Simulated assay, not measured.
Amino acid sequence: MSLFDDAVLVLKGYEDQDPEQDALRRLYLDHLAAHPDGMWKACRDGHLTASAMVIDPSRGRVLLTLHRKLRIWLQMGGHCEPEDASLAASALREATEESGIAGLTLLPGGPVRLDRHHTPCAWHLDVQYAALAPKGAVEAISEESLDLRWFPYDAVADVADDSVVRLLEATRAGL
């Protein structure tokens, strides 16, 4: 199955009671129907991305990256690559690369949230997952980060924007 086909299946199966989330799900599906290249950065009308909130529930904290280009605290994530077998695999790859943590596992059940935002390259139609950090996880800053830091749940709103706060809320609800 292609990454495109996987994305369509994931989005068709994504269920959320929030009408805004359902509207985004439909927008993502319409975008893919209109753009066969809608998975790739080259699609200037926007493209799907995959991200993951790295969480350590045993210590009540999440790992955020200070994005090198955007200079804001975000979850790990980015563009899909041709070698990604699925959106989940893309999110897990991005989380592992950007956190430096081996052994991350995605929460079962698929994405926890959708978020559409404009970036310097195009609109990102982000499919957001949650990744559990293994016990004793040690992070390592990647080339894409200015900083990498664990934040207690209640400190996230002080450093990150509302989209990250909403992702944390959805992630915690998924636990």
Rank of each mutant, 00 (worst) to 15 (best):
R68A: 13
Y28A: 01
D37Q: 13
V8W: 03
Y153C: 05
A95C: 10
L92W: 03
D126M: 11
E144P: 03
S2F: 07
L63R: 06
D161W: 05
L32H: 02
V156L: 06
G78R: 03
H67E: 14
V10C: 12
R26V: 10
I101L: 12
E169Y: 04
R61M: 13
T119K: 09
L70P: 01
L29T: 02
T65P: 03
L107W: 07
A170L: 08
G78P: 02
C121G: 11
S145H: 09
A140R: 15
W73A: 05
V156N: 02
A89Y: 09
G100W: 05
R166G: 00
D45V: 13
W123E: 13
G109T: 02
P82R: 14
G13K: 00
A160L: 11
A34G: 08
Y14D: 07
A130H: 02
T49P: 05
S163V: 05
G100F: 03
P19S: 12
K69N: 15
D5N: 12
S86M: 12
G13Y: 11
V165N: 05
S90Q: 06
I141N: 04
L70R: 12
A170S: 15
H31L: 05
P57G: 08
T171L: 05
G110C: 07
Y14K: 00
L63A: 05
E139K: 12
M39E: 09
L168M: 09
P111C: 06
H117T: 14
D30G: 01
L148S: 04
W73N: 07
R172Q: 08
T171V: 12
G136N: 08
D162L: 14
G136P: 10
A52R: 01
V10Q: 09
H35K: 08
D5P: 01
R44T: 15
L146D: 14
W123Y: 11
P36N: 02
L74I: 15
R172S: 00
I72Y: 12
L92P: 01
Y14A: 01
S163N: 08
T65L: 15
Y153T: 07
S58K: 15
E97H: 06
K69H: 14
A130Q: 04
L175Q: 07
R61H: 08
A23L: 09
L48Y: 10
S145F: 02
R71Y: 10
P134N: 08
K69A: 13
L32R: 03
D84C: 03
R172N: 00
A95H: 06
P108H: 11
D6M: 03
E81M: 14
G46N: 09
G136R: 12
T105Q: 11
A140P: 00
P152E: 14
A88Y: 05
W40T: 10
A95L: 10
T65W: 02
P108I: 04
H124S: 11
I141G: 03
L167M: 10
V138T: 14
P134T: 06
S163G: 11
L64S: 02
L74G: 05
C43I: 11
W150C: 05
V156P: 00
H35E: 12
V127A: 07
A160K: 08
S86A: 07
E94P: 04
W40P: 04
H31I: 09
L114D: 02
V165G: 03
F4M: 09
A7I: 11
R116L: 10
L104H: 01
M53P: 00
L148W: 10
A173Q: 13
D115Q: 04
G13N: 14
F4H: 14
D30M: 05
M53N: 07
T96I: 08
L74Q: 15
L87A: 02
